[in-house]
Structure formats: structure tokens, C-alpha cells
Design a protein around this nucleic acid. Structure first.
Lengths: 185, 185
DNA sequence: GGACACATGTAAGAGGTTACATGATTCG
DNA sequence: CGAATCATGTAACCTCTTACATGTGTCC
């Protein structure tokens, strides 16, 4: 139940149309809550029906013409209540860790290459976050937004470190070569 | 598409019934891929239909009586192929980071308490993982399984550090007191 | 008017969550 | 036999993903 709250947050930061929201979910907000345009349009409809947001006047046909939304008082209240509402962290569900475990059973053939690919992706993401930090928080800025960005940076840092360690272990474990053998049954 | 592969991995490690699998998904395997018994039974049915696993003989009625499954050659091959199959990491979708961002817009009332609660949960989880490490990997053990466990440990370590930092920032930012437990009406 | 970007929307299906339903076994 | 536990299964619902569909405005 986080998508509606992500949208409320985004709309409070700046009233927007569906497409503008989609763009923002590809950038800053999307760094910790991703969503596609189909999800966003559906959820905008629901939020409007629930009376948490409203479309600004100047409507044309439903398809094709731009529709701007803004948050109503009820929406702001709902969001404030949600911020404090207890909600346990979800159990981890990570395909990469699972694949490493599976490799322990069926062999690590091809896995090292995939780990290298992920390492590269996470390094890029980390560099991007750090560039954003240097640009937007040179000396302060909104402390809460900075905190969130630090979360992203720390998370990517974890992945980079873990993947480097994994590849080191692989090299050590198989002599000189990463994922050569697996010498099946 | 990871659940079937999680089940194949679990069944290769040890042929099991649905309930036994459910138990194992509440422990070791569940530490990086959680699943409920309904998901597991549904997926076992699909995997059997697909010819990747089979139920061992000695069947009774479909409800109530135990059914053991084992992985067939096709299942092992599918799992080995999946280990090497490229699959990009999913974008982050974390409700807690989102709530901190929302707090920047509607106020941080009640948030510190929730962060403290999460900090406690993550500390417990970390302690549990470290106990498992001390018990199962005193000096080695399966390097891949150890690597996965290290992933869990490092991830929890990240959360603990980030939450501690967040709470420190909160205390600094609001004078002496975070949000004074919001003492309700 | 054709191409293209802008903008919103529909549909089908997979995966996950929650609640409930049903049969078998064991133990007092 | 009643209760608890083991064990499998159904159903409803919600979210997310993927692919497709439709309309508008602009520029050549």
C-alpha cells in the first residue's frame, strides 16, 4: 500500500499530470519507489475517487489532453498518518542471493560473469547517486531528502562491496579461473 | 520468476513435502526468498505439470496425505541455466525510505518512533544471522552458502547503520528531542 | 497531411497476500 | 471420540508487468 503514498508525496512536492509524475518516478522518487505509467494513471483515478486528490479545472476529453492533479486536505492527512503508521519491513526477496545459493547445488557455471555484470551496474548507480549528492546537497539542503539519498548510496555501496567480495572468493576458490568447471556428475 | 527456482534449489538440497518446504522457507531459504505455503503448493503443482519435478510414489487422497517431491533431470538443467541467465537487479522499492521522504513534506510526527522500532527489528535479525554464522560456519563450510549469509549480514548491518544515523540526525535537527513520542490526545 | 512526441487509458496475466476449507494422524 | 496438529488445497483480491490502444498538438 505504498504507491498511493508515493504519489501523494510527489504531488505535494509539486502538482503534476500523470506523465510528469511518470517522469519523476523515473528519477528522484523512482530511486526508492519505482512505478510505471499504467500504475500511476490507475492510482490517480483511485485517489481522485477517494477524495484525496482532485484534478484541476480545464478538462478536455479524457484521452489525449493533459490533466493536472493537486492534493486535497484529506490526502495530506492520510499521508501524515501513514508516515507514523507501524509497518514491518518486508522479508528479503533477492534473486541474486538466491542464484548464488542455487549455484551451490547445480554448479557456478556462468555465475561469475553475471556477478561482474551486476557489479558494474551497481557501480554506475552508485556513481550517479554520488553525482546527485554533490550537485544537490553540497552543504546541507533538505536533511530528510539527503537522508534518503544517503540510504540509496549506502545500499549501493553494500552491493558493490558484497559483489567484490563474492568475485574475490570465486577467484580464490577455483584457482585462477572464475566459473570454469563445475564438473557435473 | 524466482519462486520456482527457489523451490528447485530447496528440493535439490533435500527432497521434501510441501509442508517441509514451507518450514524451510521460514528459515534458511526464507532469509533471502520468502514464500507462503499457498504459493509453494501452487508452484509445486506447476513444476510437476512442467515435468521439472515429480511426486514420489505412495500416494493417498490428494488432501491430507503427505506428498514428497524430487527434482528431475530437466529441473536440474533448468536451474543451472537460470543461474547463468542475465537478469537485471530490480529497482529499489522501499516503504521506509519513502516514508522519510514523505516526512519531509508533511512533517516527521511519529516517524522517529517507527525508525526506532525498525532499528530494533534489524538489530535482532542481524544478531540471528550472526548466531547462524557462528554455528554453521565456524571455519569454512560451503563457501557459497556462507557468501549468501554474509549478504544477509551485510544488508542488516547497512540498515542498522542507516537507522542509527537517521535517528542521530533527528535528535540533532529538532533540538534535544526527536518528536517526543507525539503523546496523542 | 504525415511523422512524431505528448498524453491518457485498457486488457491480460503473473505473482503475492489473506482467509478459508478439508482430510489425515496422533494423543489423551 | 474430541482436540490438536499435520498436511494439502481453494478462492478472492490486490499489485505489478507487459503489451497494446487511442487521442492531441506541433512541425515539416
Amino acid at each position: 500500500m505504498s504507491l498511493p503514498h508515493a504519489i501523494l508525496t510527489a504531488l505535494l512536492e509539486k502538482p503534476s499530470s500523470g506523465l510528469e509524475l511518470t517522469r519523476r518516478f523515473d528519477k528522484s522518487i523512482g530511486y526508492f519507489w519505482s512505478a510505471t505509467h499504467q500504475q500511476i494513471y490507475r492510482e490517480l483515478g483511485r485517489l481522485e475517487t477517494s477524495g484525496l486528490i482532485r484534478a484541476l479545472p480545464a478538462q478536455g476529453p479524457s484521452r489525449g489532453s493533459k490533466k493536472e492533479y493537486e492534493v486535497l486536505a484529506a490526502g495530506r492527512e492520510e499521508l501524515a498518518a501513514w508516515v507514523a503508521r507501524p509497518e514491518d519491513p518486508r522479508p528479503i526477496r533477492d534473486p541474486l542471493l538466491l542464484r548464488v545459493r542455487a549455484a551451490g547445488v547445480v554448479g557456478r557455471e556462468g555465475l561469475a560473469q553475471e556477478l561482474r555484470r551486476h557489479l558494474d551496474l551497481h557501480r554506475r548507480q552508485l556513481a550517479q547517486y554520488e553525482a546527485i549528492e554533490a550537485r544537490d546537497f553540497p552543504e546541507g539542503g533538505d536533511p530528510l531528502q539527503h537522508l534518503v539519498l544517503r540510504g540509496g548510496i549506502d545500499l549501493e555501496t553494500f552491493w558493490v562491496a558484497w559483489l567484490e567480495r563474492a568475485l574475490r572468493d570465486f577467484d580464490a576458490g577455483t584457482g585462477t579461473d572464475a566459473d570454469a568447471d563445475t564438473g557435473s556428475s
